[in-house]
Write a protein that binds this DNA or RNA. Structure first.
Lengths: 113, 113
DNA sequence: AAAGTATATCGCAAATATACGATTTAGTAC
DNA sequence: GTACTAAATCGTATATTTGCGATATACTTT
């Protein structure tokens, strides 16, 4: 049991769920905010700001990177991370159209809310 | 180790992460869409639509309910679920302001994207 | 080359999520 | 009452996430 059934859903649903998952931890929300604030950032400064160990921050960064929301380049002995604007915008669009779909269809009266 | 450090982040960040988590599975996305479409729904019909066992669907419904995104009332031997409009709208607002915060601060040129 | 610095990866432990079948609960119909 | 139906919960297996320390990698400085 517990085989992943995610493939059984539509590409759109999977993509949205993946983006949501990337945002599903406060540390990653905080990282994105911090990256946006500085618009140029290294992991070390994030470690100072976040209440997590260096290795844990690095892991969260990797997850954001795998989701495509941030881009990282090696910059000497440091790394430079920033928000991947185009991917982020796409994610926002996905969320927006999902929210819109829910809201417009929801116009008729509900049964129990 | 692996103690939950989520409390170490701001309420806002935690709340957004919680909502994101609720949306972090395609089954739950699909459930929300289906509920919005019908605007009145019982678990059984969802089981027919989704490629999951009844108990699994019930579990996903509970997660959505715990996140506050849907409301459920007992309706005879069946249950009636629908989207919790006000909570959903709040969630949308949280996402929107987060996205806006990222985008506006991101205005300056990036370093590596 | 050697030492230092910054980040990534490894290895592990614990927590949480995912999924199902089996069972329980709760109401309806007979 | 008993039988039926629908949904929730329980128990369990497996997968994934979270977190840390330790180690490895990679570049810089001396």
């Amino acid at each position: 049991m517990a085989i992943n059934k995610k493939e059984a859903f539509s590409q759109e649903e999977q993509a949205l769920a993946t983006m949501a998952k990337a945002l599903a931890h406060p540390a990653r929300i905080a990282i994105l905010k911090e990256l946006a604030k500085r618009n140029e950032c290294i992991c070390g400064e994030l470690v100072d700001v976040l209440p997590l160990a260096q290795s844990t921050v690095s892991q969260h960064l990797r997850e954001l990177k795998e989701a495509g929301l941030i881009a990282g380049t090696i910059d000497g002995p440091k790394s430079c991370y920033c928000i991947n604007e185009s991917a982020f915008r796409k994610a926002i669009d996905s969320f927006s159209s999902f929210f819109k779909e829910i809201e417009t269809r929801q116009k008729a009266a509900g049964c129990c809310s």
